[in-house]
Write a protein that binds this DNA or RNA. Sequence first.
DNA 1: CGGCCGATCCACT
DNA 2: GTGGATCGGCCGA
Length: 194
Amino acid sequence: MRLEKAFYLGDDVVQIARDLLGKYLYTNFDGSITAGIITETEAYAGITDKASHAYGDRRTLRTEIMYREGGIAYVYLCYGMYSLFNVVTNINGIPHAVLIRGIHPVEGLEKMKERYSQRKQNNYSVDGPGKLSKALGIHYSHSGIDLQGNQIWIEEKGVTVNQENIFVSKRIGVEYAKEDALLPYRFVLGNYEL
DNA sequence: CGGCCGATCCACT
DNA sequence: GTGGATCGGCCGA
């Protein structure tokens, strides 16, 4: 079952980040479907969050995507070579987003491998926001696309997530955000049952 | 227009 | 543990 629009419109981005664990992230690019179970997320809480690109109500061509109604992708280029995939949440005008940091591949493994063909080591792990975007064929040019469409979408497929198996921590790589860097907005899924 | 820097990853010591 | 790759976005002038 594809997640309905309402899932993305909630105003608690931290809870949504937690709820996305165990969901299936699908893509359909260049003729192939690839998918993975979401295992790691981070919440970015808009204009009051110093780690967010929208901190201080910074409206630019790039961040404008996050201000739109929830249920679309926000993808941006990081360190000049990595596309990082986020899910936009909340109503129009509030720039909340959830960064997907890790997945467990479940479908289209050969295609993912192909996208990694230039890598020297045979390591198909997709723990890491840059790596999973590459494996799934997500590019920063895809920023703004609708998650109800046929290119990127998320499904609930009955994975049982026990709250005790969710590890909570501060977010990665946001030291510049000072005190907000310490917020417990990162969620990692340990064991789960299909 | 110039310059700085990043929600990363990999190779190498 | 460390540094290089690599470039769009953002800011200040």
